[in-house]
């Protein structure tokens, strides 16, 4: 048998979950390709790799989805993980990518009948991991803003930092992850439309629920937008607070949190027009 055929045969033997049920696949693959002995028959030798394959991936998924695995419990999470691995076998060199389809997989799974929020919780778990290793980029800080002449502010382009994500949720899954992170009892979350911001400040990852006006403004900023456009978005969406105060308060918070990235000010100023001035 050629090398390619052998590798495909062994791959099938290791990854086919049925192989561990009645052993037929193991025996078939082993008899065709492997050496064994009385002390350790060939089929058992192959099975060592099958066990390691699932345990390694299960451990990786548990690590990447800590809140999801806690909510589902060991047995349920393991069953889901096995089913997920069978549907989405790893393809990338790094095992860190093994769980990338897991939130989508859960979104279409009957587990939602019992845990309707769990796909969103998995997406939050995933976003936290993504942001942890997202690209580095200088953050825009208050000192840099202060250096700008007042007339430059309206056309200044702001952009959310690449190490940030905004998640639109139907459930308050942030409450669940927060409880689990704090090692306190978690409860089923309320059904409430929220937008979560996940971001990195220095090397630590944080998340919080956004106010509606803030989420509208940051959504605009995620594409890169002139400061005047962001202010206008905030003013339109904000009720019950003086728009100027809201802008001051939120901008101060974004700068303190490192949510905004440094932009090429000269290039952007040249390219940007403030809508009110057209």
């Amino acid at each position: 048998m050629r090398l390619k055929q052998l590798q495909r045969l062994i791959y099938a033997g290791i990854t086919t979950p049925d192989g561990s049920v009645d052993g037929r696949l193991y025996r078939s693959v082993a008899e065709r390709a492997l050496r064994g002995d009385v002390g350790l028959p060939a089929a058992r030798r192959l099975q060592i790799y099958t066990e390691a394959y699932f345990l390694r991936l299960l451990s990786c998924l548990r690590e990447d989805f800590p809140a999801t695995s806690t909510v589902l419990g060991d047995a349920r999470f393991e069953a889901l993980a096995r089913s997920y691995i069978a549907h989405h076998p790893p393809t990338e060199p790094s095992i860190d990518h093994a769980g990338r389809h897991f939130p989508t997989f859960l979104r279409d799974h009957s587990i939602l009948l019992d845990f309707p929020f769990v796909a969103e919780l998995a997406r939050l778990d995933q976003a936290i991991t993504e942001v942890f290793i997202a690209p580095d980029s200088p953050v825009l800080d208050a000192d840099e803003m202060r250096k700008l002449a007042p007339e430059a502010w309206p056309t200044l382009v702001l952009r959310t930092h690449p190490a940030s994500r905004m998640l639109e949720c139907e459930w308050r899954v942030g409450d669940v992850r927060r409880a689990i992170d704090n090692a306190t009892p978690w409860r089923n979350p309320h059904r409430e439309r929220t937008v979560l911001l996940v971001w990195r400040n220095q090397m630590d990852v944080y998340f919080r629920e956004l106010e509606p006006a803030e989420s509208a403004a940051l959504r605009v900023a995620s594409e890169g937008a002139a400061f005047c456009v962001i202010c206008e978005t905030l003013a339109r969406a904000h009720f019950g607070e003086d728009p100027a105060e809201a802008i001051n308060r939120l901008l101060g918070r974004w700068l303190a949190d490192g949510v905004l990235a440094v932009c090429d000010l000269r290039a952007q100023r040249a390219a940007t027009r403030c809508p009110q001035r057209r």
Partner: peptide, 21 residues
């Protein structure tokens, strides 16, 4: 080898020690 057919086993598997390999 760690995988084949575009799939990864995330394990370090031995090779058949032949001239072809």
């Amino acid at each position: 080898w760690t995988g084949v057919g575009g799939r990864s086993l995330h394990d370090l598997l031995p090779l058949p020690y032949t001239d072809e390999t």
